[in-house]
Amino acid sequence: MSLVIASQFDADFNEALARHPSRPVIVEAAADEPWASAQDADVLLVMPSPTWKRRPAPRPDPWPGRLQWVYSGSAGIDFYPEWLLDAPLVTCGRGVASEEIADYVIAAIYAQAKDLDAATVRSREEWGPKALGQVAGTTIGIVGLGAIGSAVARRGLALGAHVAAVRRSGMQPGVTGVELVATLAELASRSDHIILALPSTAQTRNLVDAEFLSRVRPGAHLVNVARGAILDQEALLDALDAGRLGFATLDVTEPEPLPAGHRLYTHPKVRLTPHISSNYLRVRHRLLEKVLDDLSRYLRGERPSDIVDPARGY
């Protein structure tokens, strides 16, 4: 009997998934209650759509019922209710977009360091020497050294920057040349560019707060490509207004989108983008390849990749 997969993804993705050699049966997960489709499926393929936040559901009864596997197309699982993790197996799309997100981070670092718009001349009278910042020789501090943080680290080292990192596990970095530092305070005080690339969990909510921001070196640049909930946005605005922090590049906020008129839209020391660093449409094929490979592993009785630990929340 074919495996039944309830999917939140688009028709083209689902058609490609249906061509897997096992010929799974693909059903479209209900747009308003994607979790309801799990009662008639073996696998639930989910994505962080607004439905999960807009219509938070109480734990279905029964749950997980027939369901054997929940597969999140995103690396983060903070969009979903906690009961979703009670499925026998939960995996995620970790690593699919890490290279794209790392490119975004490096682009943000260079945009801040070189600021070619400010250096552009538009008349003969403006012609003259202008000082540009540097990347080589600066320190890039990374909070979280998973797939995204490691991809940023490799790029930073290749550009001649010193790369330091804090990671929750305390394990040695998998990237040669990265210095592992003991505390967030030390990282904050030493970094020219501070990159947030860690999961959003109950433990990391508002991890970057007024205390952290009080320790940053003057003119430092903060880049958040993780989740908005990790950063205390009011503390960020206070630090920018007081001149303790030089600039912030934010691809994520809390909530998303921000309410109309929020100060982050127009603050002169903030570059705000609408959660696009993953460049999803360009890497969608990588997610498909990952799902197909994990499906093959699962059907052979092997462990699929990137199993989520419910206790850690990632």
Rank of each mutant, 00 (worst) to 15 (best):
L231R: 03
K290P: 01
L231G: 04
L292F: 00
S123A: 06
V121M: 10
S189T: 08
A36T: 12
A188C: 13
N224W: 09
P88C: 12
W69H: 07
G76V: 05
A113R: 11
A226W: 00
E211N: 14
A36E: 08
I148V: 15
I77Y: 00
A311L: 15
V216H: 02
D42W: 12
I142Y: 13
P60I: 09
L180C: 06
A119K: 14
V308A: 02
L258A: 01
L45R: 04
R303T: 15
I276K: 10
I230D: 03
F79M: 07
E33Y: 01
Q172M: 13
L287N: 01
S2K: 09
L299P: 04
G170E: 08
P60E: 06
D103M: 08
D32A: 12
M171A: 15
A188T: 08
L213I: 07
T273R: 11
E179M: 06
A202P: 02
T139N: 10
P81V: 10
P21E: 05
P50R: 12
F9V: 07
E234S: 14
P218C: 04
L89I: 06
R282W: 00
V163A: 05
S123L: 05
A119N: 11
I194N: 05
D40C: 00
S305N: 14
W127K: 09
A158T: 12
Q233C: 04
E186D: 15
H275D: 13
R23H: 13
Q233S: 15
S7L: 09
I101Y: 07
E289W: 00
V223A: 00
A113S: 14
A87G: 04
D309Q: 10
R54H: 11
T51H: 02
R154G: 15
I109S: 06
P56N: 11
E256T: 02
L236P: 02
M47W: 12
S305G: 13
Y280Q: 09
E302R: 07
L281H: 15
G243P: 11
S169K: 09
P173I: 11
S277I: 04
I109T: 06
